[in-house]
């Protein structure tokens, strides 16, 4: 057929090759793709949690305002704020303020570290004081602890990896090696970690409703 060959030689759209259709570098696209995949992993875990919770008649709701909810709210605050500092870091980097960017990234790392410490304290409280472990707890619904530790544990792993990742970025930026886009890509990851918590926090802590 004629139309297949009579196409113009110059690509008609961004999809015609020789250009990035999203007008972004491949690294950023790669990070977005990773985020999609990782989001699905977390979704699968959250759906598994929902599935098991729905099938369990007496799901325990032991999170009281103090200390658990208070702690978790504080953690949410820390994480959200670290997202703000991160976006400020990206912003500074985009405007060519390298030193300021390093400062913001360090602040973000501090936020991440604070989150991990708070979370670890809460885990300790649950394990030592309340006797919740992945396989048993005082309310005799072992899945409660299992889902809690699996979900928050995987998230905490992501936070720890994120802090290390940001450390590498901070050093690179400080030495003048990395470009603004590298900071932005690391920012994408960090915000994603924040985003996941926005779903884990209400589903695991706040849904203390009897089903």
């Amino acid at each position: 057929m004629a139309e297949a060959r009579s196409e113009t030689l110059v690509p008609a759209s961004a999809w015609g090759g020789g250009a990035s259709p999203f007008a972004m570098n491949s690294k950023k696209l790669g990070m977005w793709l990773f985020i999609i995949s990782d989001a699905l992993t977390f979704s699968a875990l959250l759906v598994a949690y929902t599935y098991l919770r729905l099938a369990t008649p007496n799901w325990p709701t032991p999170f009281h305002f103090s200390p658990s909810i208070l702690f978790a709210s504080l953690m949410t605050f820390v994480l959200l704020s670290s997202s703000l500092t991160m976006v400020m870091g990206v912003h500074a980097m985009n405007h060519g303020h390298r030193r300021r960017a390093v400062g913001w990234i360090l602040a973000t790392m501090a936020g991440g570290a604070a989150f991990v410490i708070l979370h670890a304290t809460e885990w300790r409280h649950l394990i030592v004081d309340e006797g919740v472990t992945p396989f048993s707890n005082p309310w005799n619904e072992p899945l409660f602890g299992a889902t809690f530790f699996a979900l928050t544990g995987l998230h905490m792993t992501h936070v720890i990896v994120g802090v290390l990742y940001l450390g590498v970025i901070a050093i690179g930026v400080g030495r003048g090696k990395f470009k603004p886009e590298d900071v932005e890509v690391s920012g994408l990851y960090w915000h994603f970690v924040d985003l996941v918590w926005m779903f884990i926090f209400p589903l695991v802590y706040l849904m203390s409703v009897h089903i």
Binding site: P21, F22, A23, L84, E184, H191, D194, F199, P202, L206
Partner: peptide
Amino acid sequence: ALMGLSVIKGALIIAYFMHLKFERFSL
């Protein structure tokens, strides 16, 4: 209510912090 708020929060994070609002819509 919880999920609705979470989705809005997520959307804000994605749109502003993750800059999706400023990328091409095709992304």
